[in-house]
Write a protein that binds this DNA or RNA. Structure first.
Lengths: 165, 165
DNA sequence: CCCCCTAATGATAATAATTCTCATTATCAT
DNA sequence: ATGATAATGAGAATTATTATCATTAGGGGG
């Protein structure tokens, strides 16, 4: 009850799920960051608060929250999934991602979301009707090279870098 | 030389890469499908053509093509990556994806891409300028429940389905 | 406030996708 | 054709994620 997030608390209770320490801690961690944490990142943060909580519980909780639609699971191209609390649970606006394919840096952006939002809404409605989907969420990722990696590329390798195997 | 895809051929040669049998076969497979093949799917198709080609080569080739920007690697939420030849190498139009989070069905859609294209282009330019990224590609995914899974949900479980662990 | 039922957990084994190693082969510039 | 070496095949190794199962703790009922 004295825990951080009344919104999240409500959602759990509404589904008949228990408010456990692990869930409280993980939700708190997610609601305090704008980084894109992997299960491992989260595990170590959780351990810093309560070292008795296990890795499996972190995975289970993230999976649960994802299935409930409170958390979005991302793959940015390195081998591990990343997790982010969804709009509504965080104060900051809905955003999309800019991913550097070389150094894996991820930039959140909220610019143009007004226009985007409108188009997304429209597209969503049309797709829902045409394909009879009940659309719950979406992701938009742009991939490219960040400034640093661009100049590195330019200096060391004018074309595409070391591609051979 | 007498292989299928002059466009792809050129890109490889331009990078000083060899045109090997495995690469030819894999490019051919990718250019003939609109499905979203996993590495394993591709491996078995490759084996049907030349059984001496190994799994590692399939992975290596897909990774190479992805790094070259000829192939896009996707994660639709099941544990495995899926690969698709990028616009330019295929005749059919650029498309985005509609993913059923329950049965994992994937629908390509090309509707609204005109409007989308314009917005994407605009966003891309602005992001490139603001964050100094060299943007190479993007993905848009919508997630939700397909018709079949929606009605199943309705019949068996009015709210969110079995969420507990 | 204590008790009980059972959802949830911790520890660890198991699984599965992807990557690495290294001896061998095949591509292609010459 | 020939040689330098990029690319490969086979399988071992790695790593993220999931399953198992005995134990613990959340929370409704007394």
């Amino acid at each position: 009850m004295r825990c951080g997030n009344p919104w999240a608390h409500q959602r759990l209770v509404a589904e008949g799920l228990r408010i456990t320490e692990a869930r409280r801690i993980i939700l708190n961690i997610l609601s305090k960051t704008s980084k894109h944490l992997s299960a491992e990142d989260i595990y170590f943060l959780v351990r810093g608060i309560n070292p008795s909580i296990g890795f499996a519980t972190v995975y289970r909780t993230l999976d649960l929250l994802t299935r409930m639609g409170m958390v979005q699971k991302f793959d940015f191209g390195d081998g591990k999934a990343r997790y982010e609390l969804i709009e509504g649970s965080r104060k900051d606006a809905h955003h999309h991602h800019l991913v550097c394919t070389k150094c894996r840096k991820i930039v959140n952006y909220t610019d143009f979301v007004d226009e985007e939002k409108e188009l997304i809404k429209k597209t969503e409605d049309a797709l829902a009707k045409k394909h009879r989907f009940d659309i719950k969420s979406h992701i938009i990722h742009f991939y490219g090279l960040c400034e640093t990696c661009r100049s590195e590329d330019k200096n060391h390798n004018p074309s595409l870098g070391k591609l051979s195997m």
